[in-house]
């Protein structure tokens, strides 16, 4: 089947199979910044902007993106706000392995682009859908806040949601094992 959509400002017509995911279609068409991390919409590495809103492309069927506007990090090349974020990420040491970095940049860009007030709480909330296993989020948050006009902001920490999201009860046998 054929699907027509707009990717990074250009209209495209892709030949796809039913069930193809937007993540795979984008990667197959040169959008290497869109990363595969979990395929269940939990990690955020495959974040794209779908009609301007961050979305996990691994749980979007390519066919469902028909007629919609998709933007990946590649599509923001040359954007001055993205350039400032990229510079801040490098300056603050917000990049370690770099695998989640395109997604963090996209959600940070979206938050700043919206023009609303940005403080630590809104920044943490914006990044909370994107997992990062390397940084503890300190330096990405600092980079985001620096571009938001709060360089050197003292971070106070998140409110803590430890283990309260969807954790299954421990198995009785598992309890007994070291």
């Amino acid at each position: 089947m054929k699907v027509e959509l707009t990717v990074n400002g250009a209209p495209v017509a892709w030949e796809i199979a039913p069930g193809d995911r937007l993540l795979d279609s984008l990667r197959a068409h040169g959008c290497a910044s869109v990363k595969r991390g979990c395929e269940t919409g939990d990690c955020g590495c495959c974040t794209i902007l779908l009609d301007g809103e961050p979305a996990a492309s691994c749980v979007v069927a390519t066919a469902a993106a028909r007629g919609r506007n998709v933007v990946t990090l590649e599509g923001l090349r040359g954007d001055p706000l993205l350039a400032r974020l990229q510079e801040a990420f490098l300056a603050e040491g917000a990049v370690q392995c770099g695998y989640c970095t395109p997604a963090l940049l996209l959600v940070a860009w979206t938050l700043l682009q919206s023009g609303g007030p940005v403080d630590e709480a809104t920044a943490r909330h914006a990044l909370s859908g994107s997992l990062c296993r390397c940084t503890g989020y300190v330096k990405p948050l600092r980079a985001l806040l620096a571009v938001a006009g709060r360089p050197g902001a003292q971070l106070r920490g998140g409110r803590g949601e430890n283990g309260l999201r969807g954790r299954p009860a421990a198995a009785p046998r598992g309890e007994e094992r070291p």
Partner: peptide
């Protein structure tokens, strides 16, 4: 394994991290 996904095997998000 009963929790082979990031919804059930939970790693820290930006919301979980305290002041470091």
């Amino acid at each position: 394994v009963r929790n082979p996904n990031f919804l059930d095997y939970k790693i820290a998000t930006a919301m979980d991290m305290p002041e470091l």
